[in-house]
Lab assay of single mutants.
Amino acid sequence: TKKDTKLYCICKTPYDESKFYIGCDRCQNWYHGRCVGILQSEAELIDEYVCPQCQST
Protein backbone atom coordinates (compact mmCIF):
# COMPACT_ATOMS: atom_id res chain seq x y z
CA THR A 1 0.00 0.00 0.00
CA LYS A 2 1.09 3.54 -0.70
CA LYS A 3 2.24 5.36 2.40
CA ASP A 4 0.13 8.39 3.22
CA THR A 5 2.10 11.44 2.18
CA LYS A 6 1.27 14.67 3.92
CA LEU A 7 0.20 17.33 1.43
CA TYR A 8 1.06 20.98 1.87
CA CYS A 9 -0.06 24.33 0.55
CA ILE A 10 -3.16 25.31 -1.43
CA CYS A 11 -1.72 23.28 -4.33
CA LYS A 12 -1.83 20.08 -2.19
CA THR A 13 1.59 18.65 -3.03
CA PRO A 14 4.08 16.67 -0.90
CA TYR A 15 6.90 18.52 0.83
CA ASP A 16 9.78 19.50 -1.44
CA GLU A 17 12.90 20.64 0.41
CA SER A 18 14.11 22.59 -2.62
CA LYS A 19 11.16 24.99 -2.44
CA PHE A 20 10.57 27.91 -0.08
CA TYR A 21 7.65 27.55 2.34
CA ILE A 22 6.06 29.99 4.76
CA GLY A 23 4.11 28.86 7.83
CA CYS A 24 0.79 30.39 8.84
CA ASP A 25 0.88 31.69 12.40
CA ARG A 26 -2.83 30.92 12.90
CA CYS A 27 -3.44 27.43 11.47
CA GLN A 28 0.22 26.27 11.46
CA ASN A 29 -0.05 24.97 7.88
CA TRP A 30 2.79 25.47 5.41
CA TYR A 31 2.47 27.18 2.03
CA HIS A 32 4.76 27.68 -0.97
CA GLY A 33 5.78 31.33 -1.06
CA ARG A 34 5.10 31.21 -4.80
CA CYS A 35 1.52 29.97 -4.34
CA VAL A 36 0.62 32.68 -1.81
CA GLY A 37 2.58 35.49 -3.49
CA ILE A 38 5.37 35.96 -0.95
CA LEU A 39 9.06 36.05 -1.78
CA GLN A 40 11.56 34.55 0.66
CA SER A 41 13.17 37.98 1.07
CA GLU A 42 9.76 39.46 2.00
CA ALA A 43 9.02 36.64 4.44
CA GLU A 44 12.14 37.49 6.44
CA LEU A 45 10.62 40.93 7.13
CA ILE A 46 7.18 39.65 8.20
CA ASP A 47 6.60 39.22 11.94
CA GLU A 48 3.40 37.21 11.54
CA TYR A 49 2.09 35.47 8.44
CA VAL A 50 -1.62 34.67 8.02
CA CYS A 51 -2.53 32.45 5.06
CA PRO A 52 -5.32 33.25 2.57
CA GLN A 53 -7.67 30.70 4.17
CA CYS A 54 -7.28 32.23 7.64
CA GLN A 55 -7.53 35.78 6.24
CA SER A 56 -10.95 34.98 4.77
CA THR A 57 -12.42 33.84 8.12
Rank of each mutant, 00 (worst) to 15 (best):
E48I: 11
Y15A: 05
A43F: 08
Y31S: 02
S18D: 12
K3Q: 12
E44Q: 10
G33L: 15
A43Y: 11
I46R: 12
K3S: 14
Q53S: 10
D16M: 07
C51Q: 00
Q55V: 08
C27Y: 01
G33K: 06
L45H: 15
R26V: 08
K12E: 12
I22L: 14
T5M: 14
E44G: 13
T1R: 06
K19E: 15
L7T: 13
T57S: 15
W30H: 13
G37S: 11
E17R: 05
T5D: 14
Y21M: 15
H32T: 00
T13N: 05
C27T: 01
C54L: 02
C27I: 00
Y31Q: 02
C9Y: 00
E42P: 05
K3T: 14
K6E: 12
K6T: 14
D25Q: 15
D25A: 13
V36F: 01
S56Q: 12
Q40S: 12
A43M: 09
E44M: 10
D25P: 07
Q28H: 14
T1E: 07
A43P: 08
C51Y: 00
D47C: 12
Y8N: 14
N29G: 11
I22N: 01
C54G: 02
Q53K: 09
Y21H: 07
L45D: 12
I22G: 02
S18A: 07
Q28A: 09
C35Q: 01
D47Y: 08
T57Y: 05
Y21F: 08
G33E: 04
Y15T: 05
S56R: 15
E48A: 13
A43S: 09
D25W: 08
W30L: 15
D16N: 08
S56M: 03
E48Q: 08
N29M: 10
K6W: 03
C35S: 02
I46C: 04
E48K: 10
E44P: 10
P14C: 05
Q28Y: 10
C54N: 01
Q28E: 11
C9I: 00
Y21G: 04
Q28T: 11
Y8E: 15
E48L: 09
V50I: 13
N29D: 12
D16K: 04
L45K: 13
G37H: 08
Q40I: 04
C24N: 00
K19F: 05
C9V: 00
C51I: 00
